[in-house]
Each structure stands twice: as C-alpha cells, then as structure tokens.
Simulated assay, not measured.
Amino acid sequence: MTFELNRRSFGLAGLAAALGLAAPANSSAAEDPLPSWNDGPAKRALLAFVRRVTTQGPDFVAPAERIATFDNDGTLWAEMPVYFEVLFAVDRGREMAAKDPSLAGREPYKSLVEKGAAGLTGLTQAQVVELVAATHSGMTTEQFLEIARAWFATARHPTTKRLYTQMVYQPQLELLAWLRREGFKTFIVSGGGVDFMRAFAEPVYGVPPEQVIGSSAETRWEMREGVPVLVKLPKVRSVDDKDGKPINIELQIGRRPILAFGNSDGDLEMLQWTQAGPGARLMLLVHHDDAVREWAYDRESKIGRLDKAWDAAVKNGWTVVSMKREWKQIFPPE
C-alpha cells in the first residue's frame, strides 16, 4: 500500500513548515522565523542562541557541529491520553484478533476486542508489553513500515478526532525548519519505536530516517524465496530513554548536541549530556500547562512526568517553555 501525502492529511501550514519551505519575502513569516511563538523568554532565548552560534565570534559553531536533538512524545507531538504507539498497538491487536479467533478469547486481546483502547486500563504492564511486542514483530521491516503508514493515513486521536499526524505542535514545526535553514542538523531522539517514528518523521517533521533515534527490537536476516529481508523479532534490543538517550546519541551521531529539547524526566540525561559540552549550549523543556488547548500535567503524571527534570531546569537555568504563555497556537490548521 502506498502512502501519499495530501493537503488534508497534514495541513498546508504544517507541511510547509516541516519541509522548510520559505515564505514570500514580503510576508511577516519571512521576518519572524517562529510566528507561532509569543515574544517571551523562550523565543528570545532561541533567537539569541542561534544568533550566537551562527555569527562569527567566540561562540561560533561550525555547521557540522550544529546538532539539535528533540524528544518526540510530548515534545514534537502530543502524548495524551496514552502514547500514540500504544494506540497503534491496540488497533493492530484488534486486527490480529479478528483474523485469528484463538486470540480473541485471551488477554491482552480480549479486553481490546470488547472495549477498544479503553480496555488498556484493565491490562497489566506485562500484558501491554506483550501486546506491543506481538504487534511490532513477525514481519519484515518493509512490511511493518507499510502497516504503520497505512495506520497514520486513517487513524484518528480518540479525543480531538484529528489524524495523529495533525497532533504535532505547530511551533515546533517552525523551529525544526528554521534550525535547518540556519545550518543545524535536526535529530529525533525518543523512547518510541524507531521503525514506528520513521513511518512519519520525514513527511511530517522533515527529519529523514537516518536522523531518527529510538527504541529498537532485535532483527534477523533471512532469505525468503531468494530475496534477503530483515525480520522484526519480539525482543527488545535497545530502550532509548533516560541514560539510553546520550548513549545512543554518541553511538549513532558521534557528536554531542548543542541544543536539546525534551519535556519529561525521560529526557533529563539527554539535556545533562548536552549541557556538559564546551561552548554555547541550549537546553529546553516543554511544560504542558494548557488544559484548554491541550492537556495540563507535570510532576504527578504517569505519562510524560516532569519532576526531576523540572528541578534540574531550575537549578541549571534551562529554558522551560510554557505552552500556555509561549505558544500562540498548539496544532497546525486541519
């Protein structure tokens, strides 16, 4: 099944920003690279930092070293009421149970067949892990990519009814595109599955697959009818969360970021690793404090908890981005 981009699926503004398309020279967007950001501390910090590292002087950074890393869930797109990859696993699990009736009578499939995503609340953590493993394995990497792309083309968020690819943050699309115009290389470094994120990262964010770092499963080489394939196995290879993030950044990029953007305790070590390098550095955290336009949560949340990283931000002078105050709009136009 092919995956075709269209105006309705991704939104003209979001797609243009993601692809880094320049606005006409006489438009206000040409003068302001971050039009969806209010003129507050976060926007001023970004503008000042990029100016410092791209202008000849003591803080100048060569383009090759302009590495910017972004978490995905809760940083580039929403993560409530549960991580979107889990909702993908729910839909996949229900499809699998429909094709194999022997699955429908046992957990974790039984609850999902009867209640849909609401059935997650009755599952144990081990059962959710089993569900994710089963729905992400037993197929080639190419087959998984097509399955994920097909899901993104039609699946909608349970609350907003938007396509999941429309649950991205418009201010962050602008930031990614602007950084690339300023000579940065932008990477996604997230706890989500790397193959899952690669199914949408380039058309939505403008981030190519080789610049997506995520959790991964074991993969096996096979010859099928004389054709070599890579088969996804139900076994975790690497978890790209907490200290796994700087480890995988070093392993896959080989350069320390000079800008890192996260939103939760899972991003703490990535921001600490970024700060520890020499020269100019910028560490940022999204604070979900807008219950009207998105969701409000931080220290006590089970999803995207911002507790230890909040304390570190206060102690180290990192930039905390208030959704409520700093962002003029949250999502792109539909």
Rank of each mutant, 00 (worst) to 15 (best):
L46I: 15
L21Y: 13
V61D: 08
F60W: 14
L46Y: 02
P63A: 14
P41L: 00
V50I: 14
A62Y: 04
D59G: 06
G11S: 10
F10P: 00
V53F: 08
L15Q: 09
W37Y: 12
A42W: 00
Q56V: 15
P58W: 10
L46F: 11
P63Y: 11
R8P: 01
S36M: 07
S9V: 07
L46H: 01
R44G: 01
A30G: 06
A62P: 00
A29N: 06
P58V: 15
R66F: 09
R44S: 07
A23W: 10
G11V: 07
G40F: 01
F49T: 05
S27A: 13
P33I: 06
L46D: 00
L47S: 04
G40L: 07
A45I: 02
S36I: 02
A23I: 05
A18Q: 03
E31Q: 12
V61T: 15
A45G: 02
A22T: 11
L12Y: 12
A17C: 11
P33K: 07
L19C: 11
A42M: 05
G14D: 05
P33E: 03
V53D: 04
P33Q: 05
R51H: 13
D39M: 09
S28N: 03
V53Q: 08
A18T: 03
L12K: 12
L19E: 09
L12E: 15
P35L: 04
D39R: 10
D39H: 12
G11N: 05
R51P: 00
S36L: 05
A13H: 08
A45D: 00
R44D: 02
E65D: 15
L34I: 01
Q56A: 15
A17F: 02
F10G: 07
A17Y: 01
Q56I: 13
T54L: 11
R66W: 09
I67G: 08
R8T: 13
G14H: 05
L47K: 02
R66N: 09
S28E: 09
Q56N: 11
S36Y: 05
P41I: 00
A18W: 00
A42Y: 01
R52P: 00
A29T: 05
S9E: 07
P33L: 06
L21N: 11
E31F: 06
G14N: 06
A16H: 09
V61W: 09
N26Q: 14
F60A: 14
I67R: 12
R44M: 03
R8F: 13
N38D: 04
G20K: 07
N26S: 14
V53C: 12
A13M: 15
G14E: 05
L19R: 14
A18E: 00
N26G: 08
V61F: 10
G57C: 10
A17I: 01
A29F: 07
G20V: 10
S28I: 08
R52L: 08
P24F: 06
A18D: 00
A30L: 04
E31H: 09
P35V: 06
F60I: 13
I67F: 12
A25H: 05
L34W: 00
L12Q: 14
K43N: 03
T55L: 12
L15N: 05
